[in-house]
């Protein structure tokens, strides 16, 4: 069994410079995430959780510190190698869905597979499979602006899954949608995690975070609490009363 963590960060920091003003977004972040975990990152807005997510998703680079993604030092990779990593290993679910405008659900899901060079028939088949999984088999030919927020988010999930990535990164996946739909999406996440997908999710909603097995709390760019599995199990019990 491979015990190497899929995500490993040590002393990550991110500093934004605007003129002479320095803003510290992240400071001394160190943690590990093992394969198959379902982690929620919580924190108030401005706590740096989105910045952390972007670094984890290889969309951004830390100012200092080391980030090993599946054993590879992300900082040493070229732009094109990063693109490949994002394509092959990471499924990113954005808060704002970020679907291609005026493009069908099917084409949106196919897009990462086009970049990966998956043969035409295979990617068609896969896209249909994942759209089916998120319950959108009857909406495949709808363009993104013809879909509701929850439907768009489900298309984004199908897209993130299409390359069968090692990690799913979700940035406030339920932030823009109604609570009923949010529950549906969490159910999908739960199912994916049960199937062995590693999921890292940002949220500021407690009841959404309860679905995760581990919660990392961030404030002012620092980890203030990293709840383990035991503690996790208690919280839903309390919440449920």
């Amino acid at each position: 069994m491979n015990t190497k963590p899929i995500i490993q960060t040590s002393h990550l920091s991110k500093i934004y410079k605007t003129g002479t003003l320095e803003t510290i977004a992240l400071e001394n972040i160190s943690f590990e995430i093992q394969k198959g975990e379902f982690v929620a990152i919580m924190g108030p807005s401005g706590s740096g959780k989105s910045t952390l997510m972007h670094i984890l998703g290889a969309l951004d680079k830390p100012t200092t510190g080391i980030y090993l993604l599946d054993g590879k030092n992300v900082e040493k990779l070229t732009d094109d190698e990063l693109a490949e990593i994002r394509n092959q290993k990471i499924g990113f679910i954005f808060q704002a869905y970020n679907l291609l405008p005026r493009t069908t659900a099917l084409k949106n899901v196919i897009l990462p597979m086009i970049y990966a060079g998956v043969p035409k028939e295979e990617r068609m088949e896969k896209a249909k499979k994942y759209l089916n999984l998120v319950g959108l088999s009857d909406r495949m030919e709808h363009t993104s602006n013809q879909l509701s927020g929850g439907q768009q988010q489900r298309v984004a999930i199908a897209r993130a899954l299409s390359m069968n990535p090692a990690i799913l990164l979700a940035d406030e996946p339920t932030g823009n949608i109604a609570s009923v739909q949010a529950e549906e999406i969490m159910a999908i996440f739960q199912k994916l995690n049960d199937d062995g997908h590693t999921i890292v999710m940002i949220t500021h909603e407690h009841d959404i975070a309860q679905h995760a097995k581990r919660i990392i709390h961030i404030r002012d760019g620092k980890i203030i609490e990293d709840g383990n599995g035991h503690k996790q199990k208690k919280i839903p019990a309390c919440a449920g009363r």
């Binding site: 998703g57 969309l59 732009d79 094109d80 693109a83 490949e84 994002r86 394509n87 092959q88 990113f92 970020n98 897009l111 990462p112 970049y115 990966a116 897209r159 390359m163």
Partner: peptide, 8 residues
Amino acid sequence: RKALGAKK
């Protein structure tokens, strides 16, 4: 597109 893996 780049986030989804499009190379330069």
